[in-house]
């Protein structure tokens, strides 16, 4: 049952909330209990920018079972406008549409829906900015 973990991560998955160290200003995604830069332990919630660019990417042809219905799909490492990086799928993208440097926007999609008796799992993906 993934429910407790899923619920805990809603702020990150749904709203892209990061944690900013009140001591040194370092922004973490996901938020951390201890600042990786200065060791500070007090964090404030910040909304991350939703625009960014692709640093690297791949097209997954052989996915784990829970992503089977979406294959082939593009996955990318995205750097957001404030420098924070994350890994996510690029939605609705034919593979040749995504290149290193492609501008993307973070959107909300269903990530996993199997097995059928589990809760649906939503989260962020990127979309190529047209």
């Amino acid at each position: 049952m993934i429910t407790p973990r899923y619920h805990r991560e809603i702020p990150q998955r749904y709203r892209l909330e990061g944690g900013k160290c009140t001591q040194c200003g370092e922004v973490h995604f996901p938020p951390r209990a201890v600042c990786r830069k200065c060791g500070g332990r007090e964090m404030e919630t910040v909304d991350l920018p939703r625009r960014g660019k692709v640093l690297t990417h791949t097209t997954i042809w052989i996915p784990p079972a829970q992503f089977e219905s979406q294959k082939p799909y593009v996955v990318a490492v995205v750097e957001l406008e404030n420098g924070v990086r994350l890994t996510c799928m690029v939605a609705d993208a034919p593979p040749d549409e995504v290149k290193i440097g492609t501008e993307v926007e973070i959107i909300f999609r269903k990530l996993q829906s199997d097995p059928r008796w589990e809760v649906l799992q939503y989260g962020y993906k990127a979309k190529v900015v047209g």
């Binding site: 973990r5 996915p63 996955v75 799928m89 989260g123």
Partner: peptide, 13 residues
């Protein structure tokens, strides 16, 4: 698991 695999990446990926 939570920030790479959840988002569809595989090891070969």
């Amino acid at each position: 698991q939570e920030y790479e695999v959840y988002n569809g990446v595989t090891f070969p990926g």
